[in-house]
Each structure stands twice: as structure tokens, then as C-alpha cells.
Design a protein around this nucleic acid. Sequence first.
DNA 1: AATGAATGAGGGTTCATTCAT
DNA 2: GATGAATGAACCCTCATTCAT
Lengths: 220, 220, 220, 220
Amino acid sequence: MPIATDEVPAKRERRKQARPGELLQAALELFVEKGFAATRAEEVAARAGVSKGTLFLYFQSKEELFKAVVHEAMGGKFEAWNEEFERFEGSTDEMLRYCLNSWWERIGATPASGLTKLMVGEAANFPELAEDYRRQVIAPGHRLIRRILERGVARGEFRIPDLDYAVYSVVAPMIFLMMNQHSQGACTPDGQPLDPQRFLAMQANALLAGFMVRTHGGAP
Amino acid sequence: MPIATDEVPAKRERRKQARPGELLQAALELFVEKGFAATRAEEVAARAGVSKGTLFLYFQSKEELFKAVVHEAMGGKFEAWNEEFERFEGSTDEMLRYCLNSWWERIGATPASGLTKLMVGEAANFPELAEDYRRQVIAPGHRLIRRILERGVARGEFRIPDLDYAVYSVVAPMIFLMMNQHSQGACTPDGQPLDPQRFLAMQANALLAGFMVRTHGGAP
Amino acid sequence: MPIATDEVPAKRERRKQARPGELLQAALELFVEKGFAATRAEEVAARAGVSKGTLFLYFQSKEELFKAVVHEAMGGKFEAWNEEFERFEGSTDEMLRYCLNSWWERIGATPASGLTKLMVGEAANFPELAEDYRRQVIAPGHRLIRRILERGVARGEFRIPDLDYAVYSVVAPMIFLMMNQHSQGACTPDGQPLDPQRFLAMQANALLAGFMVRTHGGAP
Amino acid sequence: MPIATDEVPAKRERRKQARPGELLQAALELFVEKGFAATRAEEVAARAGVSKGTLFLYFQSKEELFKAVVHEAMGGKFEAWNEEFERFEGSTDEMLRYCLNSWWERIGATPASGLTKLMVGEAANFPELAEDYRRQVIAPGHRLIRRILERGVARGEFRIPDLDYAVYSVVAPMIFLMMNQHSQGACTPDGQPLDPQRFLAMQANALLAGFMVRTHGGAP
DNA sequence: AATGAATGAGGGTTCATTCAT
DNA sequence: GATGAATGAACCCTCATTCAT
């Protein structure tokens, strides 16, 4: 009998496997947009194209859904990224620019970027979740950036007196950008989100102007 | 003009007139901490030391309370500040440092700083309010900073190719700092808010390193 | 009459025809234990080893299932029993003792005994069903017992001033015993169900002490 | 100032104090009638003359309401009763008759009598509550009756070979009577509840016929 | 003016019932 | 026939809002 056991799932089955993902995506969008409390379970279901009851087939409660959304969006974005930087061979200023750009591609431009806005808004309501988020997202991100800066210093490319806080100089624009993208432009005077590439390019210049050892009149 | 519009109220009325202010303050704190939907009207009343009924004596609804909170917190922080900068006489790099510091004193360190976190979180749920906020807070802030940068350029102190976005370079750290202060440290790996002075000093250095016309390789 | 109405079903059908019976049995157990409303249709199906959908293949609704359960459990327990007593030839005190014992064997000790607890609990929610139950179970039972008592009186063995209520003296312990067996011992101080034989023996003695014409002071 | 601090409560206040009791009474009636699961919280509120929300002002949840109902109905019915029997001076057969009659007046005829039906129906769903019920109602009742029987034996009035189960002979008719009163007559062929006095009188006779030492041709 | 008991619309969650597979 | 994913009516419970005191 040449028929494989799991050839093609029946249509019903296929939906079933897709459901949790569809619900998580819908929930992420709505939670990011409106916050946890202001999002109705039925809205999430509707956006995922199912009825209210179906949501509770896959998640025990709205709160469990929320936790699942956060944990799903946190999921190992850093492993591959970390490795990539291990193997990076160019100058550290190239590395930092590359870091900002690839961060944008891998995180900033994806739905996962809403996660930061979500956590900023809900950290006080879900402290354990905020803890997870710091451990699994913020801390690895910090370590990654710190390693880049340390490399720059070690190779004599950067001069950074206050390394601890220098990391925040790199992090701040990324977080600002995500807030901006997900807050109906609440941070820009015209209500339009920024152009991310343009913003990041400018930030990279500013950061490097601060970090780089200047030879005679140097940089940008 | 012999008739003052807001004379000192008679003793009898003082208490009464204080109520709305206490409610607004309590509401600001709670809305910033937990968001609009997750904050219960009764909590606000309790924190203000009055009963649930009293809150609705002064504000028609929770939504009206929210609007009042936002408008109150937005209230003309810029007039005095603007004037101050009109009269500033030092170098523009001093001016920018002074700007960041006085911003921290006047806004960052006050309860009003939560407003930004609040608007980022609720912009989608209250679009008209977000519009007000952009007009009355974001836009004046931008204009102020832009004027400083333009002064620097005009006086040959700064070289700034992309002035529009350079403003965001100044704004971003301030917004990041406010997010950080009001999100249970959701932006720092250890869950502790940053030291604002240290962070702002570092940011000022970085910004000026990027903006300032360099004479002979000198760092800040 | 050569045509039996319920011949043995063909093998193919036997399984299929068994289903409703398994469901009825599972449902009886659960309804007796937890009540109608607190029993979930899915539990019944699970205990019968089928899926939720299958239950509704055989019964139009949970309510129909309930009615079927009750009617099934009520089913003609009295015909054979009645006949037996028609042919009884001993003394009436033996007859009464025999009645209690065979009641225990035929009803008390079977799953059908839960029916009484069920009806006591649900009579108010299913009045028509309670009516059926009274007609098909309670009334025949009463007639049976009354006939025994009347026989005793007719034969000069018993002296019973209030025959109508004397029937309840016989019924009461049986009903008490069933309640006790099906209510987690809610009627006993230690939460253990009674020993039925011991209880019934004692009751028979007590009843007969009350009914029997006493010759010269003799106890049972 | 001759005005006492708690003269007469304001109308509102008076209602407030009465509410829990009104709700408990309404709940007891409905739970007894329909069972816990089949009773809707809103019905209870309506029967108590308040709205749905008000119920939850006084009881955290439907389940807490249920527990309160049961505990309230269990409440110390035995203290006074016990004392009374300590002081009883007549013959023990009078005592037993008196016991059945006063039980009827104090418990059987009151709403609290529904409690037994309630517990029989819900014991499996609320095991801890059933435990409380056994400890606070069943056990004291048993002790009371046992003491009466023991007194009879000690005074040579009764001869009771199996004292443990003899207690159940006394308890059984009382429980049967309560079931009957609260089950739409599910235990009588005509659907009418029994006449309690008549039933109890007959039971007393029957019991005493079984218990009493017979002199020469004895009792009723 | 201030209170807080009462209300009831609204939202989370359950579960009997349906129906595509 | 059998399944179990999906549905949505119904129910518990919350909380903004009202109003008698």
C-alpha cells in the first residue's frame, strides 16, 4: 500500500491545525492595537474567521490566549540572529549598521514588533509575563548589542566610556520606532508613522559618530 | 484688567474645587499604570479618597474623565518653555543639553510624563484624543527642537543633512525614557528603570557628536 | 402466535442496536449521580464509549435522552413481580419479608434503583415525567403492597387501622434505602451507605411488630 | 443629645441588612425545587425582588451562594432541641412521640427541611458540603435519637437488639417525609404530599410496637 | 455635595446541538 | 453510521452608571 499515512489532511483537519495560528495572529494584532482589556474575545474570533466558541476550543481563557500570543511572538528570534553575528567579519561599524537593518527586517517589520508596545502597555497587569519577556527578548537583545559594542572597543574601532548605557543608545531608537509604528503615529506630529529605513540610517550615523574613534576630522 | 478670572476661592469652595484635581491625578496614575479599560472607576475614586458616586458628580462618564485627564496633563507646558528658549543666549550645544535637562525636570520627572505612555497605548481607542495630543504636545515639542537645531545650523555650529528626521533623533530618547519609566522597566533587562540623568547625558553626547561641525577631531 | 416481536437481531445490527442501551445505562448512572443539568452530554457519550455526535444520532436531545432513560428504567418491573405474589402461598408475614427481599434483589440492588433519587430530584423540572413515574412505578408498587396488607387483614393475621398510610410505612424504608445508596451516604453520619440486608431485616421486624395480631405477648 | 446612634436605620440601610436573608431564602427555595445547576442566578435574584447584579453584591458567586444557603439552613437547630430532651421527664415512648412531633414543627415544616432533599441531590457535586452537612445535621440528629433509644433501654422500657440500625428506623420516616414534601409528591401515587401528622403518628406507633417491651398483650 | 446600594448592559465562558468529513 | 470541529444561545459575573438617602 503506497499511501502514506499523513498524505494530505482532510480539509477539516487542515483548518484545525491552522486555527491556533490564525487565532494567535488575530489576537496579536488586536491586543497590540487596543490592549488586552479593550479587546473582546469575540472580535479576535471574528478576525480569525471563526465564532466565539471556537476560540475557547483552542485557548482556555482570554488570559491564556494572551499569554500564548506573547510567548509565541517572543519565540526564539535570537538564535539564528546570534549565530549570524558570530560569523560576521567586516568592520564593527558595518556590523552595527547591519544589526539595525537586519533587526528591522526580522523583527521591526514583522507583526512581532507589536510585542514591545503590548508589553509596555500590559507589563503592570501581567508581571510574570513581563518577566518572561525581559528574559527572553530584552536581555538577549541587550547581550547581542553589547557584544557588538565590545567588539568595536576590543578592535580599537570604538571608544565608549559608559558601555552599560551605550547599549540603551542603540536600543532606544529601535523601541521608539516600534512604538511609533504601532501607535497610530502617536509620536509624530502628523500622525504618520516614520519611514523606518530613513530613521534607522540617520540613527546609525548618529550612533557611530558618538562611538567611533576619530582619526583627523573623520566620520560620516 | 482689574478682574482676575481665577481669584482665590473662598475657603468653603476650596475643598470642593480640589476634588476634580485629586480625581484627575489619581486617574492619570491609574490609567498610565493599567490602561483605560483595565482601570475601574471605583479604583480611581478610592485613590482620590472619594466614593464612586462622587467621581460621576464631576465627570459625566469614565470616558469624559479620561479625556479630561489627557487634556489636563497636556496643558500648556510649552508656553513658558518656549519663551525661555527665545531668550537663550549661549551656544546651541549648551542649548540642546539644557533642553534635555529642563525637559526632564518639567515633564519627564512629573506625572505628566505618563501621558506619552498613555497615548501610545490608547491612541487607537481614542483617535480624536490622539489628534489633540499630537497637536498640543508632539507638534509644539517638535517645533521647539527643530528651532534649536535650525539655530545651530544657522550659526554654523551644527551640520545636519536631514533636519526633519534629526528632530526624531532628539525626540526618540525622551520618549524611550518615558516608556521605560512607566512600564515597569519593560524595556530593560533587569526590570529596573534607567537612571534618567545618566541616560540623558549620554544621549546628549551622542547627539552632539552627530550634529556638531567638527573642527580638528575634537570629541565633546 | 408464531411471530415474536423482538426476534434476535442479525449480527450486523446487534452492535448498532446495543448503542442506545449503553448510552441509556451511562446516562442513568450520571443523571442519578449528578442530576440532569449538571451532567454533560459529552460525559454520557464518553462513558458509553462513543463520541458526542453519536449520542445525538440516537436521541434527539439531552431532554429526550433523559425521558428515554427514565422510561427505560421504569420498564415493566412489576408484571413478573405481581404474578409471583398472586401465587404466593405462605403466611402474610413471610410474604412481606419476601416482598422486601425480592424488591431489594430486583430493584434496590440494580441500577434502576437510582430512578427514585432521580425523580425526587427532577420531578419539579419534568412534571410530565414525574406523572409517568407515579403511574408506572409508584402506583403499581403501592397496589402490590396494599394487596399484601389486605391479604394479611383478610386472613386475620394483621390488624391495621389506617391501611392507606400503612402502605407508606412499608414504602418509606425502601425509598430511604435507595436515597441512601445513591447520595454518597448523605443520610448517614459517617458517609457510608447502609448495609441493605441488615436494614431491611430490621425494618421487616418493626413493621410486622406493628401489623401482626399479637396472640400472647410474643415478639417476632 | 438624646439621639441614639442606631435609632432606626434608613430605609435603604434596612433593605441592605435584609437582602442577604431574602436572597438566601429565595435561593433555598429554588435550589430545593430545581437543583443547583438548573437554578439560574437571575431567578434567585428575581424571587428575592432584586436584580441580577445585586445578588453578586452579597455573594461572590453562585457556588458561594449555595454554600451559604446550606450552611445557613444547617444552622444550630439542635442546641435548643438537645437541651429540651435533657430535661424530659416522661416515659420514653412519650419522648419518642414528642421527638417526632417537635422535629416536624422545628424542622420538617420549615423551609430548612428542603435541605435534606438538596443534599441528597447535590452531595456528589459538593462533597465538602455534604461532609459539613453530615457533621452538623445528620450526626447530631443521630446522637439525639440514639440517646432517646438508649434511655428507653436503660429504663427497661425498650428492648432493642440492634441499636445502631434502630436509629435508622426512626430517621427513615422523617427523611422519607421530607423527600415527599419537596418532590412534588414523587413518592406518592397521586402526586399529593402526605399528611405529615397522620404519617408521623402512624410511624410512631409502628416504631414503638417494635421497640417496647411487651407486658401481656400490650400496646395500640 | 457625598454616598454606596442597586441596576442592567456587556463580555467571558460553557455546552447542547449541528454537520462536513 | 460515527466523528469531533464548529457554532451560538444561554448563563455567570463585572462594572459603569444611577439615584434614594
